[in-house]
């Protein structure tokens, strides 16, 4: 396999054919911010913070570097007014959920993001999926997974597996960009009350507001 030559931020970079733009940039010492990337895991492309501008045949467009394969002779810019503006917005959106995350705070300083721009909904989780993917891809335990979709998407542990596997592992805690708060919280919740949450019929009131969608969807059965 022959190497591929491309230009990143004005620097000529030699990359392996199966590399992504992010890998190529990092191999050349050029940093691109990421939240959902981890070198041991399959590229995921969810946080979109690693966007860069790629120019092919004179047309610049924005691509996501962690999933974009390197191409011969392309010109890549990792910073521009537009990229910075979008990264700032992505950070502001995330900080509505995890305002206290150090990683987010550092990036916010760099990009001038205002952590208070959007109304706070502190759920801690920013859905980077690092815990879920690490548990599945590296540890092969599948103790934690995603549930639901869209703005209701959450992480959730499978109590039977978590009670056996998690206490001695907890490797996902360190990966969490929100300082392990979310994973620890959800895990403990799953371990403390797996039994009570198994039987939604016994709550007595399925329509109660506080049970909200989670109960309606029956999530408590699984969580």
């Amino acid at each position: 396999m022959s190497d591929i030559l491309l230009t990143i931020d004005g620097k000529e970079v030699r990359a392996k054919q199966d590399m992504t733009l992010l890998e190529a940039a990092r191999s050349a010492g050029i940093s691109i911010p990421t939240l959902c990337h981890h070198e041991k895991l399959e590229p995921y492309g969810a946080c979109r913070l690693c966007i860069v501008e790629v120019e092919t045949r004179g047309h610049p467009r924005i691509v996501v570097s962690c999933v974009y394969p390197v191409e011969k002779d392309i010109v890549v810019r990792t910073r521009s007014e537009k990229i910075d503006r979008i990264r700032k917005m992505i950070l502001e959106l995330q900080m509505a959920h995890a305002p206290d995350s150090f990683i987010l705070q550092d990036l916010a300083t760099e990009y001038g993001a205002d952590k208070d721009r959007f109304e706070k909904e502190p759920s801690f989780c920013i859905h980077c999926g690092l815990c879920v993917r690490y548990c599945a891809e590296v540890k092969k335990k599948n103790a934690v997974g995603f549930v639901d979709r869209g703005i209701r998407k959450e992480i959730s542990f499978i109590p039977e597996i978590a009670s056996k596997e998690c206490w001695n592992c907890k490797e996902c805690f360190e990966l969490c960009p929100t300082e392990a708060l979310q994973a620890a919280y959800v895990l403990i919740e799953a371990l403390i009350s797996p039994e009570t949450s198994f039987k939604p019929e016994e709550d007595g009131d399925r329509t109660k507001g506080d049970q909200d969608r989670k109960a309606r969807k029956g999530l408590s059965v699984l969580a």
Binding site: V132, A136, N142, A143, V144, G145, F146, V147, S156, I158, E160, I161, L222
Partner: peptide
């Protein structure tokens, strides 16, 4: 298949 996938 893992329960996490079924749950999702």
């Amino acid at each position: 298949v893992p329960m996490t996938r079924i749950q999702h």
